[in-house]
Design a binder for these strands. Structure first.
Length: 476
RNA sequence: GGGACUGUGGGGUAGCUUGGUCCAUCCUUCGGGGUUCGGGACUCCGAGACGCCAGUUCAAAUCUGGCCAGUCCCA
């Protein structure tokens, strides 16, 4: 089998090869940007969804599901929003052979599907807050090159929509979403940076947008999530109001929180190595893969011990796979490394007789485990792998940013850049031109490598009075 | 949105310039048999492709047009 392309120098080739070789997605479906979720990738997605559901419900959100088609007149109600999405929506204009009187939009996101209904759900301050989420497919007519999980036209989308009594309550919901995201990112061992987007790059219709970005390769970054504060921008055109305790009618303040299968792409991009995918235990389709070594005259002890281990680990709640196929053990090792299994247990005749098993984690760390304490030792090994992945990722994260002091530092930048910015759009665009990318925004917390220092002078104009820290990078 | 390029079995490819030698090459994959089995085994047998639709021609994988899909560059 061929070697994988080098991740550091040929990132996207490496990524595409790994996704295909690990059987995570089949991109041969004949519509651009619409790929097939194959069993292994689907299992990972389902585990990721379960994690999102668990955490968002813990934060007080309830599941809903709205229809995929939105009437054109509802879609058009908020001016900025329609302007932002107009160029990338799919239209349904016919029912059978009949032209529809009211054309339908295939949802690119669900604000305009939900908000007319929210209007009828909300009457009183007692109906607030309204926190609901759904995990559905959305559609965007993406014109750039599509990539499995990273940029697709049929998006597996998580979206929370909330209605709050006022701006402060909505701000608190944004904070709650950021806390939820932090828990999710930790479970996946993904270091990220939360950035308030500049005015010209916020979500169409938003008061402000916070992007959640991860560095992936060189100066490249990947947006893996967003949290938006809409203030009253949607509730006014959609007429979503409530009566407050004093009997006064007020528009609600709204927020949204969006994630997608890009999270899965991010896990592959961040943790993967020259052997293939590396799954953290939280979403590994199989956390433990058992490889019996069946050579020798009588493999029955090995078989029965392997089956025993499988059953015991399964009962203990681990996702475990016994690979008793005809391949030689070495071939299985390569295949499961490519597929990213966190922990492999090798069991041969001598080990079966000695009641031990050899555990090798995806980072290649080998240890012999006694069968009588197997469950707890496997649990430790998985936790230890997750910890090592997080540490490894943190090291790469911190070296993925560097300070830039002059505009001339930006072209050909080998990392994302931390710099001072006066906040004016004109200077923002000069920075974007310099790095041939985007001004991602201003960090919600101290940016990497600044240790609480006050911001540098604006890299474009030299002003010092209104400067903030900002991150410039090249979004993937 | 503008431009350039590409499309051959499940995956990767040779052949295309100069139409015929191609019932299409090689590697891999898949199915079956045997020998194997502690880091990608060997061997035998078998399966599987010219993106789609038109056109030119005695003859099209090869030339032309449209469509679909993909890649890259620019807005």
């Amino acid at each position: 089998m061929a070697e994988l392309p080098d991740k550091a120098t040929q990132f996207i080739d490496w990524y595409l090869e790994v996704v295909e070789a690990a059987h995570l997605s089949d991109k041969r479906y004949p519509v651009k940007g619409m790929n097939v979720w194959t069993p292994y990738g689907f299992r990972a997605r389902r585990l990721l969804d379960a994690l999102l559901i668990r955490e968002i419900e813990r934060s007080g959100s309830e599941p809903v599901e709205f229809p995929a088609l939105i009437p054109a007149n509802e879609f058009a109600k908020e001016g900025e929003h329609i302007k932002g999405f107009d160029a990338q929506v799919y239209w349904v204009t016919k029912g059978g052979r009949t032209d529809l009187e009211m054309p339908l939009v295939l949802r690119p996101t669900s604000e305009t599907a939900m908000y007319p209904v929210f209007r009828s759900w909300i009457r009183s301050h007692r109906d607030l807050p309204l926190n609901v989420y759904q995990i559905v497919n959305t559609f965007r007519y993406e014109t750039k090159t599509t990539r499995p999980f990273l940029r697709v036209r049929e998006i597996h989308f998580f979206e929370e929509h909330t209605c709050q009594t006022d701006e402060a309550a909505a701000g608190a919901r944004v904070d709650a979403n950021l806390a939820t995201f932090d828990t999710i990112a930790r479970a996946l061992a993904l270091p990220y940076i939360a950035l308030r987007r500049p005015e010209w790059d916020k979500f169409p219709g938003a008061y402000y947008s916070i992007g959640l970005d991860i560095p992936v390769a060189g100066a490249r970054t990947l947006q893996i999530g967003t949290v938006h504060h809409y203030r009253e921008n949607f509730s006014r055109p959609y007429g979503i109001g409530y009566e407050d305790p004093q009997g006064i009618q007020r528009p609600v303040h709204q927020t949204t929180f969006g994630l997608s299968e890009r999270l899965l792409g991010a896990v592959i991009a961040v943790h993967g190595d020259h052997h293939g995918v590396v799954f953290p235990s939280a979403i590994a389709p199989y956390q433990v893969v058992l490889v019996p070594i069946l050579g020798g005259p009588d493999p029955s002890v090995v078989r029965s011990t392997a089956a025993e281990i499988r059953d015991r680990l399964g009962s203990a709640g681990f996702r475990v796979w016994l690979d008793d196929g005809d391949e030689r053990p070495g071939a299985k090792y390569y295949r499961w490394e490519l597929a990213g299994a966190p922990l492999r247990l090798e069991i041969g005749r001598r080990e079966a007789e000695a009641r031990t098993v050899t555990a090798v984690d995806r980072l290649g760390r080998k240890e012999s485990l006694a069968l009588d304490t197997l469950e707890s030792r496997v649990r430790e090994r998985l936790a230890d792998l997750d910890r090592a992945l997080a540490e490894q990722a943190a090291v790469r994260y911190s070296s993925a940013f560097s300070r830039a002091h002059r505009l001339e530092d930006l072209p050909g930048s080998p990392t994302a850049r931390v710099l001072g910015w006066c906040g004016r759009e004109e200077c923002g665009h000069r920075i974007e031109a310099g790095i041939d990318g985007a001004l991602l925004g201003t960090p919600v917390r101290d940016p990497p490598g600044t240790d609480g220092a006050s911001p540098d002078p604006c890299i474009a104009c030299g002003r010092t009075d209104t400067t903030v820290w900002a991150i410039a990078a090249r979004p993937l």
